[in-house]
Design a protein around this nucleic acid. Sequence first.
DNA 1: TTTATTAGTTGCATATGTCAATCATTATTC
DNA 2: GAATAATGATTGACATATGCAACTAATAAA
Lengths: 152, 152
Amino acid sequence: MEIVKMPLGMVVIKMLKPMFCVLEMRAAKQTDLKLTMPQFVLLFTINEEKEEVILKDMAEKLGKDKSAILRMIDLLEKKELVRRVVDQNDRRKNQLMVTKKGERLIAEFRKIESELNSELLEGLSEADMETFYKVANHIQIKSEQLKIASTI
Amino acid sequence: MEIVKMPLGMVVIKMLKPMFCVLEMRAAKQTDLKLTMPQFVLLFTINEEKEEVILKDMAEKLGKDKSAILRMIDLLEKKELVRRVVDQNDRRKNQLMVTKKGERLIAEFRKIESELNSELLEGLSEADMETFYKVANHIQIKSEQLKIASTI
DNA sequence: TTTATTAGTTGCATATGTCAATCATTATTC
DNA sequence: GAATAATGATTGACATATGCAACTAATAAA
């Protein structure tokens, strides 16, 4: 398998590209609202947080400039997927909340994704997938450590 | 491990983000030329081809519009990493060639990447990584099949 | 030799992204 | 308690990224 000679990042990008392509096509068919990938990732990440989140948190978490996040939130708010709510304890902050509509969209997307996954993973064992997730998780954690270390 | 509940795409994105962040920081330190990720992926993909490649091929392969690729090639050409050469058999076509400078950049990047990889993969077994690559490859191939199937 | 197809290009619109400057609010310090 | 600093959000300027539609030049098909 010559694939092993390819840089890890490239391997993953090459996997992700056609996968997201199919995902986008299917999502476009079933939902009228069309989100770009960065928008969806932002929406998903806000939703995922258990604590209150503000713009600054998302900028840090996604590794982008605040203004980039701000403009995406503008778009998400225009589509009624996210709301800004002023924090009454600190009026500089806007808490970001996913609306019911946003939650429905995420649920819909998750369904499409899980259907796609079962097609994509056909032929792979449970054990293989556990290993895959383990490796992905490992790389994520290590990368974050390195990122923090080199930022200091 | 609750991570398994996350959509596969999200898991991979979450792995890729900090990894690329570190990669970019290190690459920026060692090379004066700064490429964006899409530019680098394009450069790498042109380089990877064994046969002659033209703009149209890259647009198809990367799943983007011809004009998007065209403008990136403009940028890569301006940076002297890629050259267009008119195909003498069919003068509509421009063959894309990676320059020596481009090749050096790729080699440099590969080195940085492989160093990073050995840090990131520390603690994972060979067998784990083989499984990871196998799964990634499997997903890529299946996705491409689905993509083609749904395009027809 | 018309006509159709193909590869590349251009204009336009939107999205994404960084940086620097600014505004309002809250914390700190003297 | 008033001046100053720090924080969070916003804006403007600018470059890149991306898709769509219209167009040009070259080649293939009729």
